[in-house]
Design a protein around this nucleic acid. Structure first.
Length: 173
DNA sequence: CGCAAGATTGGC
DNA sequence: CCAATCTTGCGT
């Protein structure tokens, strides 16, 4: 049976996709053929060119190009020259939005989960609907989920309006 | 071409 | 508190 989440799920506004991702499952098939699955516990929404915390606020550049794809594409970038950040693009084509995966079960922090999942630049622009090494599955056992809202982390440079948005979503079960 | 800053983390 | 480490966007 195939529980993989598809275009229909990801081609919605990031403020709808982000909370809906919580409690669902990220699956990774490693080079040795083994597959591991993890529950998504915390995410953040980055929403369009107006959002000064979103990389797309710089406009359509080489780096942000992938965010202008339709939902389901992966956006990966290196921060501080050290950590890979794993995002999933949302919304329709030409609307630059993405969800940052901030934590999965047992791995708290976007840098740590990327290390566990062995994410690097080669995953940029890969599509989770089609990839054979990374995808998102619907969690069939997900019932009552409690979601906590919070401010996004590490974006103080973005100004009062944007840094105070409660666009971090945390699974609180 | 140079430079400053960054959606983080771990160590002092 | 602060360094690590390198890509990116922007100014010269």
């Amino acid at each position: 049976m195939n529980n993989r989440l598809t275009e229909k799920f990801f081609c919605r506004d990031v403020l709808d996709v982000a909370p809906d991702l919580l409690g669902n499952i990220i699956a990774r098939k490693f080079d040795d053929g083994s597959i591991k699955k993890y529950i998504i516990c915390e995410v953040e929404a980055y929403r369009g060119e107006d959002d000064l915390a979103c990389h797309a606020s710089k406009g359509h550049t080489a780096r942000t190009d992938v965010m202008y794809n339709k939902g389901g594409c992966i956006y990966v970038y290196l921060i501080y020259g050290i950590h890979w950040m794993l995002n999933i693009v949302t919304a329709e084509k030409n609307i630059p939005q993405a969800v940052l995966i901030r934590s999965i079960e047992r791995y708290n922090g976007p840098g740590k989960l990327s290390k566990e999942l062995q994410i690097n630049k080669s995953f940029n622009a890969e599509n989770v609907e089609e990839s054979n090494r990374i995808w998102i599955e619907k969690n069939p056992n997900l019932t009552d989920k409690k979601i906590k809202l919070a401010k996004r982390i590490g974006i103080d440079y973005s100004g009062d309006i944007w840094k105070n948005k409660l666009w971090r979503f945390i699974l609180d079960n």
